[in-house]
Structures are given as structure tokens and as C-alpha cells.
Computed example of a mutant assay.
Amino acid sequence: MSYETLDIERQGAVATVWMNRPEVFNAFNEQLIDDLAAACGALEDDAGVRVVVLAGRGRHFSAGADLNWMQRASACTEAENLADARKFAAMLQALSGLPKPTIARVQGAALGGGTGLAAACDMVVAADNAQFSTSEVKFGIIPAVISPYVLRAIGPRHALRYFQTAEKFSAAEAKAIGLVSELVTLDELDAGVAKLVQSLLTGGPLAQQAAKELIAAISGRQIDAAVGEETALRIARQRAGAEAREGITAFLHKRPAAWQT
């Protein structure tokens, strides 16, 4: 598929989704939201894709919402704004819910919704020049749609600060509070992503999908008999599958598993 605001590069089992609006620092508008949603659907259906990397062309990952889009939204009715917000929410849910590992490759600005895009990915590799912010209150709005993903990454205590102050915070601070997984120099950004990708490609794809589903199902729940039973059912189902049999056999015979070849 071709997209107006995206370039998608394939290298083996890795698909890199490049936001391609460098002239506005990859700020997103209605078209970019539609394109990202469509790309997530296509990549989910592509069995040849094992890992998805989200990146931004140019000097910045994403400066957040396009100011022209925000201006249009401010003149819309509440019902029109609700329809717009639902599209954004659906896109973030599609990105977060991809049944394969996702990595945000972040350099420069990742502001507002750019922080949300990074948080919606499973992992973030950030250059040391990256800056993050939930800057919405500066414009009299709130980071509502991105909040589930940012809260998942940094927790409510840090969110209470950054959602209200709209401060920019560094990649080092983002790593300290849980948003960034790996912090590298700008020159090492692609190598840092590649290293993480290589680790991901050693895992069974169905097991990775099941691991994501496990986290979504168990996170935040009280540890009780019901949780214990659910985890037992999930591991039993996984162990009984062909992928587990292949993985264990490969380990015992000291050979790569089928998904690694």
C-alpha cells in the first residue's frame, strides 16, 4: 500500500514506518492519523512482518498535533471534535494492540501526541537529543487520548506533574521514569534499534503475541485465585502449541528455532 504521509521500508521481517512530514516536524493531522491506522491494519495482517519500528523523517520524531489541524478543531462543534478524537484514539489503540513487537525510534522532539505515539509502542529507543512533553495544557486542552499509554509508561505520580506543568523533559529523564527503554547517542540510534530488533527476532512470534495479551489481561489486577487460574490456563495453552514444541526441541538439539531461520 502507498500512503500520503508515510513511507514503509521492509528489511527482512522488520517493517519501519516512517512518518514523512519533515517540513512540519512530523506533526500529525487527519491524514497522518488515517494513514497510521491503515498501516497498522496492513502490518497486522502481514505474516512476514515480525517487528514494527515507528520513526520520523528529518530532525524530529513528531512535534505533536499540526497547528492548522488544532485551529480547525477549535472552530468545530463538540460532536465534530468527538469524531476527530475517536479516530485518533482508534489509531493509538491499533498501534498499541499490534500483535507483534513495536519500537519507537525517537530523535529530537516527541511532543504532545508525539509522546503519545512513543508511549503506545512497546519499547522506545531514544537519542540523547530527544525531548518529550505532554504540552496540551499550554493550549487549554488535555492529553486525554494519549493518557492511557503515557500513564502505562510513567505511572500516575509522574503524570500528575507533566500533564499539568507541560514541561519538556529530556531523554535521560524519560528513561528514568519508564518511558524510554534504551538511551543512545544520535549517531547510535539505528544501531540501538537494530540491537533490540535482533533480540526480538529470537522469540517465537506467537509467544510474543501471547505475552502482550498476558500483560494486558493481568496488569493492575489483584493477585488472587482467579489470576492464578488465568495464568495457569494461558501457559498450558501455550505449552500445548506447535511453536512451544519447536522451541523446546530446538533448544534441546542446540539449533536455531524455525522462526529464527
Rank of each mutant, 00 (worst) to 15 (best):
L160K: 15
V124C: 08
S96P: 00
A166I: 09
G64V: 05
R105Q: 15
A73F: 07
N68L: 12
Y149E: 06
T165F: 12
A83W: 03
T102W: 07
A166T: 08
E80R: 09
E80L: 02
A127E: 04
L98C: 10
R59V: 00
F163G: 12
D128W: 06
D84T: 12
R86W: 06
L67K: 13
I142E: 14
M70Q: 12
M91Y: 04
V145H: 08
S147Y: 05
S74C: 06
A79E: 15
G64R: 10
Q131K: 09
R59K: 15
E136C: 10
S133M: 07
A85C: 09
F132N: 03
P99G: 06
H158A: 10
L82V: 11
A63G: 12
R105I: 01
I103M: 06
C76E: 15
V150P: 05
H158W: 06
A89M: 07
A83P: 01
A120K: 01
P143D: 02
G112E: 06
R72Q: 13
S135A: 12
S96W: 03
L111K: 09
L117D: 00
A75L: 12
E136I: 00
A65S: 11
N68R: 13
P156C: 03
K100G: 09
A75K: 11
A126H: 07
C76D: 12
Q164G: 11
C76H: 10
D66G: 04
T115A: 05
S135H: 09
E80K: 05
E80N: 02
A119L: 04
L67H: 09
L151Q: 03
L160W: 10
E78D: 12
L111Y: 13
L151S: 04
M91F: 05
M91W: 02
S74I: 05
F163I: 13
R161Y: 11
A79V: 08
I141G: 03
Q71S: 11
V125R: 02
D84V: 07
S96C: 03
E78C: 00
D84C: 05
L67Q: 13
D128T: 13
L92M: 01
A85D: 08
I103Q: 00
Y149W: 09
G64S: 11
G155D: 00
